[in-house]
Design a protein around this nucleic acid. Structure first.
Lengths: 233, 233
DNA sequence: CCGGCCAGCTTACGCGGTAAGCCGGCCGGG
DNA sequence: CCCGGCCGGCTTACCGCGTAAGCTGGCCGG
């Protein structure tokens, strides 16, 4: 074998010996950060390894497999959502906050957040939040089932609009200077068949600029909350 | 080279010669069907090729690359949504129908439909539908921008609840006989840390059985539509 | 002082996407 | 009637991925 790194002794900074050992948390946050920057397709066990100064295979000591890694990322994303209602908030305000926090996660992690919608949904962070808000709802007179439905509705909106906002904006290039109008049109058109009638192209352009997803979200969460009410099923 | 299929002449059914040549449509629907049955991870260019009686590489004559294939599948999914308002329907009814059609796609293609939320959003089928419904809204007094917002809101709900319904149900096993209650608990718990408190486990179980996503969806789409109104921004 | 343990390393396998080029049959022009 | 080009499909080859299996060297409790 090659000698590997001869200096297992920490290069300069660690007290006792060897570098700070990995653990699930460090692996997951590194994965989230890496995917945020390099895209989901760019996230690879080997590359994540190098990022952490470690061989790819070593990660398997801390996550079962790549699926588990992705599920762990989802956990981290949920951890950014308010963990429970503010102490003085009414239930509507609390749920609005909850949904809003969820919605915002998509803005902060445009590339990674869709995992929330596509991977295993149930994880501790989710359960903790559901329980906290459910508790509040029960105190307000919701029965368990109605409460779960209400929370579900609110989560559905957060996720739905969060995704929609991304999709409307998404294929943005992220280069230094903003793209010209013509460039944008060409980019949008490229995935479409050649014979798309002009009005549809215009529509496509408007979709990425005219729509105010934030406002749509606010409006419809308010409408929803107005339509909900305590009581048994 | 190997002789390949010696009988290029159609085996029994085709008139002129060789098998019916592939085309984008056939490739896409085969891909959708295959992924429906074998999962997204199971969908492979080579395997899809064999499914179509063709070598994997041949598919690249009809789709640019795998990404384009997936985007094409999304197109097919959208094609299942009502293309425009029924002639006699009011705008609320039309939008409800639209959202509902979208929502149902997730039920019909539980494995594949999440692609709608994660891949390129803009494609012709989408544009066609947006235009059709936008047209109706404008006739009702919405200005273009408000109309787009309304459609967006409705789509957001369809997608959001569609996904949520899947996630609540999802990790179902699809074996012949239904799993025992204990099996289900174990399955749900497996992805969670070992020390989850019991109430959270109970919550997890309830999430997959107690929640009535259909009803949540109906309620909140109604609430939303009630809250929308024509007029300029 | 030493035995076990465990984080991380190495090797190796099968499979995925796809670039590049090849071939053989059909079809339209001479 | 012949022939040249075209085009659908085939072949080969490359590189990177996820991961099974086993190894190793240093730390730590006895």
């Amino acid at each position: 074998m090659a000698i590997g790194k001869p200096a297992q002794q920490a290069p300069a900074g660690e007290p006792t010996g060897r570098r700070q050992p990995l653990n699930r948390q460090r692996v997951l946050s590194a994965a989230l950060a890496y995917a945020d920057r390099h895209g989901l397709a760019g996230l690879t066990m080997r590359r994540l390894g190098t990022e952490l100064g470690v061989e790819g295979m070593s990660l398997y000591k801390h996550v079962a497999d790549k699926d588990a890694l992705l599920d762990g990322i989802v956990e981290l994303l949920w951890a950014e959502v308010p963990a429970g209602p503010a102490p003085d908030a009414g239930w509507r305000q609390a749920l609005r906050n909850f949904a809003d926090g969820l919605y915002r996660v998509f803005g902060r992690h445009p590339i990674v957040a869709p995992l929330i919608a596509t991977r295993n949904f149930v994880n501790i962070e989710v359960l903790r939040r559901y329980q906290a808000y459910l508790e509040l709802l029960r105190q307000t007179g919701f029965d368990r089932r109605r409460g779960l439905d209400a929370i579900g509705a609110v989560v559905g909106q957060g996720v739905g609009y969060g995704l929609l906002a991304l999709r409307y904006t998404d294929p943005a290039p992220q280069t230094a200077e903003p793209e010209s109008n013509l460039q944008r049109i060409r980019r949008i058109t490229r995935t479409l068949p050649a014979d798309v009638p002009d009005p549809l192209v215009e529509l496509a352009v408007d979709l990425t600029s005219e729509c105010d997803t934030d406002r749509c979200f606010a409006i419809s969460i308010d409408a929803l909350l107005a339509g909900l009410a305590p009581g048994p099923a």
